[in-house]
């Protein structure tokens, strides 16, 4: 077994084919690669296990839980998390689809890549920067619009007002999230649009379709499920985004659909960021429990998005 597999310098013509020992390098390398992959499985299992472990006291404790019970604590936060993410998605998806089409089918060929890069730059801005920008610039810029909405569309519950004087509303937070998920959805949508089989497109054009008709009949049907899953991946990202919301929102932990007033629901992620550094005792466990809830929700959303992609067979 331990004999060398072959002579270091094989004499041309006289060497013979080595038999016996296997080379160790292959086994070691393969083992390392497999171990690395397995480590990832363990890490994810560990994330779930440790979060559960540490949130367990929140369920069993006799101590006072903030705001009475776990449900009363996490419920409004959950509501706010979903509300902000939905606002982000409703704003970002149409724009992202538009940009995706613009870059894939409308922009001049030579400029398209550069323009795509500009959109990608949006993803390169750190979340803390978006947060401060949202709190300082965007909320100010939105003030006149909130005022107008409250005055003219106040009969719609969403805009019931009274309009926030600081502009730091859940709607502003949703807009910041929209800007943050925009490059993600755009990049995926663009790739899917570009994957439309050239044959389908040319078939439509050969029938005398205008560019828009070609997109409507060839590109959009092909890309529909891909765009849906891109939006869901964006949703997963918006649900978990922390700093932008933590910096923008003035939180009062209510459940309300009023998007432009001073009283806003918080989000789970932002709440953890704001409370955790000073939390102690069972409050820590309650925060971790809320983190677990967030983990489960984003897991489900991402899972659904992947499932849609896998089912439709479009490569995202």
């Amino acid at each position: 077994m331990s004999t060398p597999t072959r002579a270091p310098e094989r004499d041309p013509g006289r060497g013979s084919i080595a038999t016996g020992a296997k080379r160790p390098g292959d086994g070691i390398f393969r083992g390392t690669a497999t171990a690395a992959g397995t480590l990832i499985l363990l890490t994810l299992a560990a994330v779930a296990a440790f979060l559960m472990w540490q949130s367990l006291p929140a369920f069993t404790t006799d101590d006072e839980i903030p705001r009475g019970s776990l449900t009363a604590y996490i419920g409004p936060l959950l509501f706010g998390t979903v509300l902000a993410a939905v606002i982000a998605l409703v704003v970002a998806t149409p724009v992202a689809v538009g940009i995706g089409l613009f870059i894939s089918h409308f922009a001049p060929r030579r400029a398209a890549q550069g323009l795509g890069y500009l959109v990608d730059l949006l993803a390169a801005v750190p979340s803390i920067v978006y947060g401060i920008w949202g709190a300082v610039v965007l909320s100010q810029a939105m003030l006149p619009i909130y005022g107008w909405l409250a005055d003219n569309l106040g009969f719609i519950p969403l805009f019931a007002g009274p309009a926030s004087a600081s502009g730091r509303t859940i709607f502003t937070a949703g807009l910041v999230l929209a800007v943050m998920v925009l490059p993600i959805i755009t990049a995926l949508a663009r790739d899917i649009f570009l994957q439309t089989p050239r044959l389908h497109e040319e078939a439509a054009l050969a029938l005398g379709a205008t560019r828009w008709e070609m997109i409507r009949y060839a590109v959009l049907p092909y890309a529909r499920s891909g765009v849906v899953s891109a939006a869901m991946l964006g949703l997963g990202r918006a649900l978990g985004e922390t700093m932008a919301v933590a910096l923008v929102l003035s939180v009062s932990n209510v459940v309300t659909f009023n998007l432009i007033s001073n009283t806003n629901p918080g989000t789970i992620a932002a709440n953890i960021a704001l409370q955790f550094p000073e939390a102690a005792g069972v409050e820590t466990n309650v925060l971790i429990a809320s983190g677990l809830a967030l983990f489960v929700i984003t897991f489900l959303v991402n899972f659904a998005a992947r499932w849609i992609v896998a089912r439709s067979g479009v490569k995202a």
Binding site: G37, L41, L44, V47, L233, G240, A273, N302
Partner: peptide, 27 residues
């Protein structure tokens, strides 16, 4: 194993960053 890893890597891509922080704190 390979399919499980591919799937979970996809899932990991979507972990909220704050949850990653919580995990390490808990660990």
């Amino acid at each position: 194993l390979s399919r499980a890893i591919t799937f979970l890597v996809d899932v990991m891509t979507g972990i909220p960053s704050i949850v990653a922080g919580l995990f390490v704190v808990a660990l």
